[in-house]
């Protein structure tokens, strides 16, 4: 039987929604390819619908990259390297720590397990602004200000949201798999490494993409802890670029750099989207 969802009528609202979502990206792309004068004019006229210029200024990208920071090109490369280091470490640390903690919450019976779990969930209700100053004072007392450590180290202690996600997923894995692993001489650590992590690929993909996008685009944390230009991440560098060129004056360069910044997120999303819907668990047990 033909599903009602395959009816083309259903695609209309979805397509409209997709176009609305894509509009800012299109706008950014078009402005990034305009000349300075055209970009300035379209900004001042408040014109929203943009068409691709007949003569796209690909050179805007090279110029934008070379004008980040005080040193040509190296300023951008420094920021890029910092962002990559921070993002890769945070993504890896979040996946490892969150899945490890979640395994304990989902599978190990210990006194106070539910209480600790609720306590952990409660931390999600604390606005980031509440912990901002105490955390800053704490990291300053450790001498970590203007280093990448305050951005990376907290990720090794898990993220409440992802622990919750992993826990829900791990709780669905049949108990018999854990029992089989125990008989096969696996301790809890090996069960986590050899069974839970490989089976949790869909959650890991989501965790990786969400964490990557959040950390890559995070502006506030690097702004608080990183003061010197050499330590700046891309998001901070992008901001200094904007003020350096008095805001809207060089909007075409700002948009070009924004496009460059966005590319890794888009690539990662498409690379990982298969895992969002893929359940690796099929075949483990009868069903």
């Amino acid at each position: 039987m033909r599903s009602s969802r395959s009816n083309p009528v259903w695609y209309l609202p979805v397509s409209i929604g997709a176009l609305l979502m894509l509009f800012p990206i299109w706008w950014m792309l078009v402005v990034s390819l305009k000349t300075e004068a055209d970009a300035k004019q379209s900004m001042s006229s408040g014109e929203m619908l943009q068409v691709l210029p007949g003569n796209p200024q690909w050179g805007n990208y090279a110029q934008a990259v070379s004008e980040v920071g005080t040193e040509p090109v190296t300023g951008f490369l420094d920021a890029l390297a910092n962002s990559i280091v921070v993002t890769v470490l945070v993504v890896a640390a979040t996946i490892l720590s969150s899945s490890l903690v979640a395994t304990a919450f989902a599978r190990i019976r210990f006194r106070g397990r539910n209480g600790f779990f609720i306590l952990m969930l409660a931390t999600m209700m604390l606005p980031a602004q509440v912990t901002m100053i105490p955390l800053f004072l704490f990291f300053r007392s450790l001498g970590w200000v203007d280093t990448l450590l305050p951005l990376v180290v907290p990720a090794f202690f898990g993220s409440a949201f992802f622990i919750f996600m992993y826990r829900q997923f791990i709780a669905q894995i049949p108990e018999s798999l854990f029992e089989a692993a125990r008989i096969d001489r696996c301790g809890w650590f090996e069960i986590w490494w050899r069974i839970v992590l490989p089976l949790s690929r869909p959650v890991t993909a989501i965790t990786a993409v969400f964490t990557f996008i959040f950390v890559w685009n995070d502006f506030m944390t690097p702004l608080i802890y990183l003061h010197s230009e050499e330590q700046a991440t891309i998001a901070v560098a992008l901001n200094s670029f904007r003020t350096q060129f008095s805001g809207i004056e060089d909007v075409h360069l700002l948009m070009a750099l924004s496009v460059v910044t966005m590319v890794p997120c888009i690539v990662l999303f498409f690379a990982a989207q298969r895992h969002f819907i893929e359940g690796l668990g099929s075949g483990a047990v009868k069903g």
């Binding site: 049949p174 018999s176 798999l177 029992e179 089989a180 692993a181 125990r182 008989i183 096969d184 001489r185 696996c186 069974i195 490989p198 089976l199 690796l280 668990g281 099929s282 075949g283 483990a284 047990v285 009868k286 069903g287």
Partner: peptide, 30 residues
């Protein structure tokens, strides 16, 4: 004594095969 030290093997109702491993991997894992 831990299950792994009892030198027993168990076959489960729902098979409990490791889904991310091949058949050879499942057989050799223990």
């Amino acid at each position: 004594v831990h299950p792994s030290e009892r030198d027993i093997a168990m076959v489960f109702q729902n098979y409990a095969l490791y889904p991310h491993m091949t058949v050879a991997g499942n057989l050799s894992f223990g």
